[in-house]
Computed example of a mutant assay.
Amino acid sequence: MIKNYTGQTAISKTLEELKDKDINRVFYVACGGSSALTYSSKYIIERDSKILAAEVYNSNEFIYRSPATLDEKSLVVVISHLGNTPETTAAAEFARDKGATTVAFTYENESPLAKASDFRIDYQYGPQVNPADSRNILIIQLTLGLLKIKEGHHKYDALVSSLPGLQYTVDKAIEKYTEKSIDFATKYQNEKMIYTMASGSNFGVAYTFAICILMEAQWINSHAIHAGEFFHGPFEVVDKDTPFVLLLGLDETRYMEERAQKFLNKYGEKLFILDAKDFDLSKIDIAIEGEIASVLHLYVLRALSREFAKVRNHPLETRRYMHKVEY
């Protein structure tokens, strides 16, 4: 029987159901931006868990590669906004055939993906939705909840106690970078290539901005660069004419981002440096600041994307091929 819950209730009820299940591996399976949202969770598990392993897979590759570790002790988290991505639905069915437990995050609770999963977590969507009810925070919350029920990890409670202040924190972060966002979008609206860079729990956000916003929604060439790999090839493209968006987070990998920033400041010029140290985190538990930083980066970059859409007269919903031609 499929269990269907919404928002915060969904997380607590699902964790209750998973508490007695023997789980040793978590697979996050999705495509595009939905997949990128899971990088923070993979980072959290790999850093903090002694009994769980984590993998991030593109939905199709998950099926074709058919990981040997996928079995009845696996939890497969499948994500699709509308729940109608065919390969993600197929991945959920594939995982269940292997005996794994599946949890779907989808906006549409009657979608094919929801019906193909053991549990489905619905979330709210839209500009007026409280960030605490958005899928990006709910995915992290589920991950931290797993660590709590399996290993007694403390960060789940720290996150829950911070949720009431998340709307304020997001609003202040966007406000802090509004002027910089308008300036960067206005100055570089005609650029043919913009690189993005981050590391650790923030890398998925950099990937999302590069692939889903700049390339998909604005038709600007882009590439997400891991800050740890920057000095192993990519830094050769840096000059005064090449724009970079760099995220600086609050997790353990910040040093790599700071090292990249020093180089960009010296040899680059067209820069959008988004530093989590600028955020007002007064309403966030200090134990969870690193995890919240990646969420705030995402919201600020969404605001930046709206500025690009405005000055370029290119709505974020405009597509040439997606859902328009056969592929």
Rank of each mutant, 00 (worst) to 15 (best):
S74E: 01
M256Y: 13
I220M: 05
I286V: 11
E252Q: 10
T101N: 05
Q128P: 05
K42V: 13
A90N: 04
D183H: 11
D183I: 04
V311C: 01
R259H: 11
M215H: 08
V77W: 03
F231I: 07
A210H: 10
C31D: 04
E175R: 08
E175G: 02
E108T: 15
D251F: 06
S66H: 09
Q128A: 14
R254M: 08
Y195E: 08
G126H: 01
A158E: 03
S294G: 05
H323L: 15
K172Q: 12
G99W: 03
Y188K: 03
Y327L: 11
K98V: 11
L250G: 08
P234N: 02
I137D: 05
H323M: 14
R306G: 10
G268W: 02
N4Y: 14
K176E: 10
A303D: 10
N190F: 03
I225V: 15
E326N: 12
L82N: 15
N58Y: 03
V325F: 10
L159Y: 08
M1S: 15
Q8V: 11
Y177T: 01
E252C: 01
V160D: 05
H232R: 11
E87N: 08
I137T: 15
A158C: 08
P112S: 05
Q128R: 12
A287N: 12
I45A: 05
N202S: 15
L166C: 01
M215C: 07
R259K: 15
E326R: 12
I286T: 14
E179M: 07
I79N: 07
I194M: 09
T102S: 05
S199R: 07
F308W: 04
D251A: 01
I121L: 15
D278Q: 06
K192D: 14
P127C: 01
T178Q: 14
Q167H: 00
A100Y: 06
A309C: 00
L274C: 07
V237M: 12
S117N: 09
I11L: 08
R306W: 13
A53C: 06
I140L: 13
N84M: 00
L52S: 02
L247W: 04
P243K: 06
G33E: 01
G99M: 04
D278G: 08
T143N: 02
S201N: 11
N265T: 06
D20G: 11
V129I: 15
T169E: 00
E291Y: 14
E17R: 13
D71E: 06
A95L: 02
T253L: 09
T186V: 10
H153M: 06
K176V: 02
A173L: 09
Q141A: 12
H153T: 03
H153E: 12
L304V: 01
A210V: 13
G204L: 02
E179V: 09
E191V: 06
L142S: 05
V77L: 07
L316H: 02
N58W: 03
F62N: 01
L146I: 09
I286K: 13
A287S: 11
E289Q: 14
G145W: 02
S162P: 09
T106Q: 00
E72K: 12
E307C: 04
K98N: 12
A309S: 14
F230M: 06
S34F: 04
R135C: 13
A90I: 05
S181K: 03
K73G: 07
R259C: 10
W219Y: 12
